[in-house]
Design a binder for these strands. Sequence first.
DNA 1: CTGTTAGCGCGTTCAT
DNA 2: ATGAACGCGCTAACAG
Lengths: 339, 339
Amino acid sequence: MKKRKTTIHEIAKALEIDSSTVSRALNNSNRVTQKTKGKVLLKAKKLGYHRNLLASNLRKNKSNTIGVIVPRISRHFFSSAIAGIEEMAFAKGYNVIICQSLEGLEREKSIVDNLISNRVDGVLVSVSMETEDGGHLKHFEQNNIPLVFFDRHCEVLGNNSKVLIDDELAAYEATIHLINKGCKKIVHFSGPQTLEIYKNRLKGYKEALKSQGISFDRELVITSRLMEQDGYNSIEKILNDNEGVDGVFSANDMAAIGAIKYLKGIGKIIPDEIAIVGFSNEPMSEVIEPSLTTIDQSGYEIGKTACNLLFYNIANKDVKTKHQTVILKPILIERESSL
Amino acid sequence: MKKRKTTIHEIAKALEIDSSTVSRALNNSNRVTQKTKGKVLLKAKKLGYHRNLLASNLRKNKSNTIGVIVPRISRHFFSSAIAGIEEMAFAKGYNVIICQSLEGLEREKSIVDNLISNRVDGVLVSVSMETEDGGHLKHFEQNNIPLVFFDRHCEVLGNNSKVLIDDELAAYEATIHLINKGCKKIVHFSGPQTLEIYKNRLKGYKEALKSQGISFDRELVITSRLMEQDGYNSIEKILNDNEGVDGVFSANDMAAIGAIKYLKGIGKIIPDEIAIVGFSNEPMSEVIEPSLTTIDQSGYEIGKTACNLLFYNIANKDVKTKHQTVILKPILIERESSL
DNA sequence: CTGTTAGCGCGTTCAT
DNA sequence: ATGAACGCGCTAACAG
């Protein structure tokens, strides 16, 4: 078993040319004959040559690698985002280093240092729950490494770009969808108002009603933790207390499913009598309740978009750019009832 | 904004010592005074120094990075495996490069070349569906890069290690579990016999029956594609055709859930009259049917185990080792019915 | 079109 | 304990 790997010098020696010519040939430079190019490539294959990117990267001062920091890889939203990122990166010939903060600030800090040491060409970040101050993330721009947030962002001095989901618009569109289907009295299942996402979704719901001249009724907003059982209970309660409810916009999918189960139990037919839309970015709801209409934005699309933006920023590193914020439009998916 | 990053030479100059001393200090060598060590570290922090790992790695001919090849990152099993891998790697100070083959052989081949060029210190692979011959994976060992398969493996000449789930044992234990609960007549929902996993699960089921002196009844094995609807139909059919069925071992979770739904519909109480175990390594079934007993091995554990084995092989690269196969024992999870 | 030279930033000899 | 010098493998700059 041979120890050292073959270098350009060996293939240069074998061909009795200079190593720089070999280098050029391997890089498909146009300053080299087709003939020698062919000879070099042949010899390289024959010797099982693999370019040493450690050396190449050092010389070019560029790692051809982007770093990705997420709280948890195994969460479906993040794993699909990473899938999108990897596809974009692969297409551009970049590598992807994956790091998970596990929702911890200290770990996130050490990841930042490590990525800088690895001289990544850019970074995609979805911050941990402990991250409020983005001080440690400033190191990236201090080292001239472009950074793009996706989904979970935080404020950092300097230029930073982000790709987000428009919760308010999503809620707006979901509600409009229900109105267009003929709903007059639409219930909203909302979540804890401490969270930005639920506040925004409530806002979008209100906006939609207003835009269509429907007056907002506080009674029709039920706040819960949005578990399946909550949806079940909420729809039961609202139907007892109110006449003529014909639509539900749920701030997540599980509560929507609970409501559907309740309605099925009492013999209502979905979605003819009561139309339901659930906010979702997991595929789970589709499996549990194939007839549920959902509104969401896939992690995959966000990942791809963020990665694209990052590459743009890498390419234009030198030109001074301002904050870029891409807000992705949600997608409403109405599935056929399989029942 | 300064362009070039600070190097050991700059901090050496600032301290009026030699760069090699700085290098030693930063590497915590014992051949350097505590005092100078302190001064160097201080200065390094002050100048915002980050070691250039491109250079360091080149010099040491070692990238401190492992490569991971999976068919699809967004599949839950793989994303949790990657999560486990990342945690182990982080603990050892290694980076993880993620690559997805998207079930394609050509893409897998080009990933292999790329990882070799990046001089990864080791590789974890779960092969694509198109990969039957592992010829391209031989490149790894030719380049002295340890390789460990997890979950999906294939034959490669030379030494290669793998970490797998013991499907047969899992099925055996699931069936034994049912017998211990008092079941006398256990149905098996099986899948396409072209797939190794379903063959092995059937084998384990048979073994368990045999070991407990229960005779195998071909009538009690129903083969389908194991969708929810299949489970629903299968249990209906079996209950019509057979008296006294009191247990079901399903080769996956969706069919088990279908069966539970059917039984709920006809008013049976689970799990008192008919006990059901579904094979599963997705968390989805838990959400859909919280009372379902499952047997599986998590991707997370497999990832951690495989990564550990890889590090072992990296550490002992020079000593000649033989094939290592780790077969993980499945875990049976019996949940309380929430209904 | 090709060869020569130099150096990316670091770690590791040798000296002292 | 520190300094001087070299080289990891490759590419860029300059000749010719």
